Every structure is written in C-alpha cells, then in structure tokens.
Amino acid sequence: MIFEVAVLFLALLWALSVWFFLNYSKRQRQVMAEQAIGDALRDQRIKDLAKRLDDYQNGTVRMGEAIHDLRVALAPLPDKLQQLEQRDPSSVTFSQAAKLVGMGASVEELTQSCGLTQAEAQLMSKLHRAD
C-alpha cells in the first residue's frame, strides 16, 4: 500500500513537473516572440535613423558646396570695390545721387546732374526717397 501511494505521489509529482515545464516553455516562447518583435522595431528604427543621418550628411555636403560657390563668387568683390573707390573723383557716384535724392532731387535732376540713365535715376529715387 505504501508502495502504491509512493508511486501515485511520484506520478502526480511527475505530472506537475511536466505541467510546470510546459508552462515555462510556453512563457519562454512568448517572451522570445515579444523580443523578436522588439528587435524588429529596434532594427527598423535604426534603419530610419541611419537614413535621416545620411540625409543630413548629404544636406551638409550640399550646403558646403554652396558656401564654396559663394566664396568663389564673392572673392573678386573686394578688388572691384577698391576699383570703384579709386575711380575719378570728378565723376558723380551713386552715393552722391543718393544724397541728392535725400535732399529732394527729382528723377530728371538726377539724370542731368549725375549722368544716370532714366531707369537708374528712378531706381535711386525709389530706394533713397525719404518717406
């Protein structure tokens, strides 16, 4: 009788162990599936961030190229400015025309006294008119 009770107890213990093992295996599969989903989301996020980083790098390179082009375009300007400053002082400059506009000179007066074209005189008048 004791032997039969012991066998029955061992059988119950074995069945309980099998049940715990199966539950543990099931939970482990669920955890692994959740981790796989998390890993896939993480990998997608890394790909998205890598693409954004590439876009920023490409934009920075284009900006650098544009700045270089601007430097090349602006490089001769100091020499041109110096040439303008060293022009014949007897000729009336645009700055003098601006002063005349500030004193109330008309477009016709600018064309006559400064030697500007009609379009230049109109532009000077619009730019420097005291409103």
Rank of each mutant, 00 (worst) to 15 (best):
I2Q: 09
F3G: 13
F3I: 12
E4L: 13
V5Y: 07
V5M: 04
V7C: 07
V7A: 10
L8E: 04
L12A: 10
L12G: 06
W14P: 01
W14H: 13
W14M: 10
V18C: 07
F21P: 00
F21R: 12
L22N: 15
N23A: 11
S25E: 14
K26I: 09
Q28T: 10
M32K: 15
M32R: 14
M32H: 13
A33W: 04
Q35G: 03
A36V: 11
A36F: 07
I37M: 06
I37E: 12
A40H: 02
A40K: 09
L41A: 12
L41P: 01
I46W: 11
I46Y: 04
I46T: 09
K47Q: 15
K47C: 04
L49Y: 03
A50C: 01
K51R: 12
K51W: 00
K51M: 02
D54K: 08
D54T: 01
D55L: 04
Y56W: 11
Q57D: 10
R62H: 08
M63R: 06
M63D: 08
E65V: 04
A66M: 14
H68P: 02
D69L: 10
R71V: 13
R71Y: 14
V72F: 04
V72Q: 13
L74A: 04
L74Y: 10
P76H: 05
P78V: 03
P78L: 12
L81E: 09
Q83H: 05
E85G: 12
E85H: 07
Q86L: 03
R87H: 01
R87K: 07
P89H: 00
P89E: 00
P89L: 01
S90W: 00
S91F: 05
V92R: 12
F94L: 15
A98K: 06
K99L: 15
V101K: 04
G102P: 07
M103A: 11
G104A: 06
A105W: 01
A105R: 01
S106K: 05
V107L: 00
E109I: 05
L110H: 02
L110S: 06
L110E: 02
T111Y: 02
T111V: 13
T111A: 10
T111R: 03
C114K: 02
G115E: 05
L116V: 06
L116R: 05
Q118P: 06
A121M: 01
M124S: 07
S125R: 15
K126D: 03
L127D: 11
L127R: 06
R129V: 11
R129K: 13
A130N: 14
D131P: 14
